[in-house]
Design a binder for these strands. Structure first.
Lengths: 345, 345
DNA sequence: GTGAAAGCGCTAACAA
DNA sequence: TTGTTAGCGCTTTCAC
């Protein structure tokens, strides 16, 4: 059951006017007399008239909704991004419709299709860790749907993008570990489909090089599912620590993975930072209260969300097709705490 | 700019049929010949025809969108709830439109108004910590908008509700602290406008009584802003520890407040659990990795979201007005860890 | 300054 | 079995 809203027709009938007059009066058209205008507007206010946004959408072919696809809402990094998105969208009168891929490619395809079929005005997406094929997005992009990528982007699609400086984030973290005396720094990364992962590994490599540390491929591990389950991370860590020369430090390149690494170290009773140092990408709350306080690479998530939606609105509201695209790269912040600063020399 | 979607009209024209025939063929109406049907459907598939949901909404007076209002998305408890909501909504073909009140009453009113004006089919809301007036919701409720309350409810509005057993959650936590030998158990709560808070305080009181511990009003502190800022919690804790007989344990009754309490104890270098024990409501990740591992009252957040949306869909999809309302109460779980189990006897 | 009518995409009652 | 028409709520051209 649903209540019946007041329509322009109701007002017109009650006031003995035509719907067009009412419409114009409400939109403050200059061709309506002051008297009629105030009559209509007062009456509308009394009845708490609200224009039906669906009717408007049908007319304007604009839904004032934007779709957002992330892997998980319940991941601090992404919820902070959504927070940033929502903060702007709300002010500009746009709805935010959220979907989660749960790191599944097929679910992402469904999400995107579903959103597209709901006539969104634009799409904000951070692809799933499994995504290495982008036909589903390419298709929509070619049809003219405004899309902005954030965090996990598809380089092949020409549109606005916003990421952090993954290379530097990883570089700084690794350099820091090296400076603290760690020599066997392992890299626990997400899926290597992601540009993120590749850039972070590049930064890590460069830092090893600049620290005159050898690059050992055995120390790089990928979590194809992005560390969704603890077991995935556990497995690669088991491999790492079973190495003849096990790592003395971990650099983890994603929120989820970082948490699982901490959990692992605790369960295995490995002393942090004496036996194993750790630095990870993380936007979790309370990392400073962990045991030991965790050194993190923090991303400006809220800011990223803000920028992404602003870029999208620019695309949506631009009169002429946008041909010049921007890729904004935000800085990360290395916050040094105890987890990485106590190697036994 | 926006791409032009294929419409029924396009198909009708191309095939030399009327729009109604096409419409009926697509909806698999029995009154259409098999031949026409397959003709239309194949052609539609080729063109990747998608019914325009806005047109459908206008016709059916149903938007297939539901509004959700929470205080903060970037709060684990709420993001887990949203996760639960989304999981069901998606399957049933409903959009989830999210708004945040940021714990502000006036913002909540705006959010609710905005959502209502966007012709949502129903509303899921957990009120802000400042909300002690419910006219904005009452109005919509009277107009027939289906509403379901979760977590922070308004008792005065007759509709479905889902909460946890706040009384028992608080009772168990307090009993546990008492059993561990803590004698001056302070209660750091949210706003006393919230039924949550009142129930948790009642549980706390009963537990004190059952543990033969005196009830001391000085030990109860409210955070009217729900502990949104650290400073708010800091202030009440300063008061508590400045007492002639300061507390030897804290029971915190909200996620945000719990985190701030931990932060405070760390900053003041109070030894947990020896000098001060602590138990808090929390759905944060990694509480077991804190220093010390935190004893928590955990809420079934995902479940709560699932149930809330199911109740709402029942309301929305019910043919006749629903008169019998349900208030589901879910159990909490006390997870005992080191933060509450080490009092110096 | 105001009204009539068409149209956005779709469905459904009514005709044929 | 298929087509015609009206209508959901709104805006906007075209008349008056």
């Amino acid at each position: 059951m649903k209540y019946e809203a007041v329509t322009i027709k109701d007002i017109a009938k009650a006031l003995g006017l035509s719907t067009s007059t009412v419409s114009r009066a409400l939109r403050d058209s200059h061709e309506i007399s002051a008297k009629t205008k105030s009559l209509v507007r007062n009456y509308a206010k009394d009845l708490n008239y609200r224009p039906n946004p669906i009717a408007l959408s049908l007319k304007e072919k604009r839904s004032h909704s934007i779709g957002v696809v992330v892997c998980e809402i319940a991941n601090s990094f992404f919820s902070q991004i959504i927070n940033g998105i929502e903060s702007i969208a709300y002010d500009k009168g746009y709805n935010v419709i959220i979907s989660q891929s749960h790191e599944s490619y097929s679910r992402e395809v469904l999400d995107v299709d579903y959103l597209a079929s709901r006539s969104i005005d634009g799409l904000l997406i951070s692809v799933s860790t499994e995504t290495n094929n982008f036909g589903h997005l390419q298709k929509l992009h070619e049809q003219g749907l405004p899309i902005v990528f954030f965090d996990r982007i598809i380089n092949e699609i020409q549109t606005h993008k916003v990421t952090v400086d993954n290379f530097s984030g990883a570089y700084d973290a690794t350099r820091h570990l090296a400076a603290e005396g760690y020599r066997r720094i392992a890299n626990v990364s997400g899926s290597d489909y992601l540009t993120n992962t590749r850039e972070r590994i590049a930064g890590y490599r460069e830092a090893l090089h600049d620290s005159r540390l050898p690059y050992d491929e055995q120390l790089i591990k990928y979590c194809i599912h992005g560390g969704k389950q603890y077991e995935e991370v556990e497995e690669v860590l088991d491999q790492l620590f079973a190495l003849p020369e096990p790592p003395d430090a971990l650099f983890s390149s994603a929120d989820k993975i970082t948490s699982h690494c901490m959990r692992y170290l605790k369960m295995k009773e490995l002393k942090v930072p004496e036996e194993v140092g750790i630095v990870g990408f993380s936007n979790q709350a309370m990392t400073e209260l962990l045991n030991p306080p965790l050194t993190i690479v923090k991303q400006p998530a809220f800011e990223m969300g803000r920028i992404a939606i602003e870029m999208l609105l620019q695309l949506i509201e631009s009169k002429k097709p946008v041909k010049q695209f921007e890729h904004k790269v935000l800085p990360t912040e290395l916050i040094i705490r105890d987890s990485s600063t106590g190697k036994i020399k």
